[in-house]
Nucleic acid binder design. Structure first.
Lengths: 123, 123
DNA sequence: GAATTCGCGCAACTACTAGTTTCGCAAGGA
DNA sequence: TCCTTGCGAAACTAGTAGTTGCGCGAATTC
């Protein structure tokens, strides 16, 4: 559940910062960072927030990891940040999805084509 | 930046739970919750995670609030939880968008209709 | 309208632990 | 070989998270 120690180490390495470096940005000692990464201790919320600022990641990424599986199918649902909830994804209609919505248009085309066909062949 | 105290109170009230109730779920005293909500103290990461479980919200929502404004336009971009990043929204296809993708299908229908029209009128 | 319950805040205290200090170790570089 | 870089571990301490205890206003209940 809580992947913070591994996440911190991973993200820190990805951004090529040392424990010393990070420590000075957070105004704590290097050993404090070491403890966080080994799971010997856990930073308080303030330092967690500072970490999200420094690394520019979300709290959820920092604590749960990017793979924090959502219960919804991300290919079908997307997160709407404005309303803070998942909504059905629009677009990516296939042919039948389209027909369900635009049958009237297709029908209209058929009628028009049919009408002109009769008209022309009747000449 | 940190809206946790207000968020906790807000979310707790939305879900119609009392401080007592919440406290028993977290195995802490009611007064501990009171302190969290008044900002007198801050829960440790473990209790924060438990809160996200109980309320079924993200850590970011709990700490920053749902209004944690994204820099992107949510009407144009949506969050892809699978890749943990914002992607351009696939918009509601309109008729012409569809035609651009499925002109071949429409053309096929037109041919079929045309063919049968000629066939029948030729009887 | 007194008594009780519910939901919550505040002050004092304590135990825990996050963070510090100190020591040390392995890997490069000069 | 010495120095620097990057990190881990043990012992210690100060800060604070959480507990205990008191109380208060507002609904219910009798």
């Amino acid at each position: 559940m809580n992947k913070f120690p591994a996440q911190l180490k991973k993200i820190r390495n990805e951004q090529n910062t040392t424990q010393d470096d990070l420590a000075s940005q957070l105004f704590v000692t290097r050993q404090a960072i070491s403890k966080w990464e080994s799971g010997d201790s856990t930073p308080d919320l303030n330092n967690l927030i500072k970490l999200t600022d420094i690394f520019n990641v979300s709290l959820d990424t920092l604590v749960f990891g990017a793979e924090h599986e959502t219960k919804v199918d991300p290919t079908e649902f997307v997160f709407d940040p404005k309303h803070n909830r998942y909504v059905r994804r629009l677009g990516k209609m296939n042919f039948w999805d389209f027909l369900a919505g635009y049958w009237w248009a297709v029908l209209a085309i058929v009628f028009v084509i049919g009408f002109f066909s009769l008209f022309w062949s009747g000449q």
